[in-house]
Amino acid sequence: MFDVGDNVVYPHHGAGTVVSKETRVVLGQEREYLTIKILHNDMTVNVPTENAEKVGLRWVIDLETVEIVVKALSGESTEMPKNWNRRFKHNRDKMKTGDILELAEVVRNLALRDHEKGLSTGEKQMYVKAKKILASEMMYAKHMSEEEAAAWLDEVLANPAAGKTKAKPKAKVAAASA
């Protein structure tokens, strides 16, 4: 399923690269493990290959899906519970799914709420974590550095048109907007 060199997403920690695949004996049983290096938080995760699907491990999205994520980030806020701890649980459950669009929705909704009303301390921490996880995947999907991906995400949240991939050469864009 996953091989050394694959870029993958571990939902709770973000995107990384499979750096090794090895067999280990644990509690008398031989099991195959994937070792995943997650750059954005300098973490190494070991996942038994038979549990990869159960923990939500998946490949990094492609550029087509990046465009869908940008649309999700630039959409309107969706209905969320008014009570902050219900809202926190609602967002945490969305993040746990490992679905990139659910994560993008959490980032968008928290960004909008932060701009309009401010966030509780717990929601601020969640917002920072969700943005880091999303940026870590964008780093691999868009072939950027960690810093470039974080800046790109901030720009998309501030100006949704900024995230769109430029399909036209600059000369035509300038002529079209004149």
Rank of each mutant, 00 (worst) to 15 (best):
F2S: 06
F2L: 04
V8G: 00
G16V: 02
V18C: 05
V19K: 04
S20I: 01
K21G: 00
G28M: 08
G28W: 01
L34C: 00
T35Y: 07
I38N: 01
L39G: 09
L39H: 15
H40F: 03
H40L: 02
P48T: 01
T49E: 00
E50L: 01
N51L: 00
N51F: 00
A52N: 01
K54Q: 00
L57D: 03
R58F: 09
W59Q: 12
L63C: 13
E64S: 15
E64W: 04
E67G: 03
V69Q: 08
V70A: 10
V70W: 09
S74H: 02
S74F: 03
S74K: 07
G75C: 08
E76K: 12
E76Y: 04
S77Q: 12
T78V: 14
K82E: 15
N85S: 12
N85K: 10
R87Y: 02
H90L: 06
N91A: 08
N91I: 04
K94G: 01
K94T: 05
T97M: 05
T97Q: 07
G98W: 01
E102Q: 10
V106H: 06
V106Y: 07
N109D: 09
R113F: 15
R113S: 14
R113A: 11
E116L: 07
G118N: 02
S120T: 12
S120P: 06
Q125L: 12
Y127R: 11
V128K: 10
V128F: 15
V128P: 05
V128W: 13
A130M: 03
K132Y: 05
L134H: 04
L134M: 03
L134C: 11
A135G: 07
S136G: 10
Y140M: 08
M144K: 12
M144G: 06
M144Y: 13
S145L: 07
E146K: 10
E146W: 14
E148L: 03
E148H: 05
A149I: 14
V156P: 07
V156S: 04
L157V: 09
N159T: 15
N159C: 05
N159V: 07
A161F: 10
G163M: 02
T165K: 14
V173R: 14
A174F: 11
A175P: 13
A175I: 11
A175V: 09
A178I: 10
